[in-house]
Amino acid sequence: MKDIVLIVTAVILSLAAAGAIYRIAVGPSLLDRVLASDVLLAILGAALAIDMAVNRHLNNLVLLVALTLIGFVGSVTVARFVADRRGQVNDS
């Protein structure tokens, strides 16, 4: 049971991370990359939480909350300073 859950979730999360990384690489805009990196952070958090649930410990819980904070600060900062470039309207 434990192994099955670990393998299945690992496969799913790996595929999800690959998709998010592809979106970070391709873009096309900075905001898309911010959004995809947020999703990647959520996937990492899910992996940490699954490890906690399967192995019955709470060592990663603080890391999980810190990850939330970092993702929040990161995306807000980037979104705040996205420049309004008139030249490339609607390149999403």
């Binding site: 049971m1 099955i4 595929l15 999800a16 998010a20 995809a36 899910a46 939480a49």
Partner: peptide, 19 residues
């Protein structure tokens, strides 16, 4: 096990949506 796998599927759904 069901909760974990459905939770992981949410991540996969987000990745598919992103793509």
């Amino acid at each position: 096990a069901v909760l974990l796998i459905v939770g992981a599927l949410m991540s996969l759904g987000a990745a598919i949506g992103l793509l």
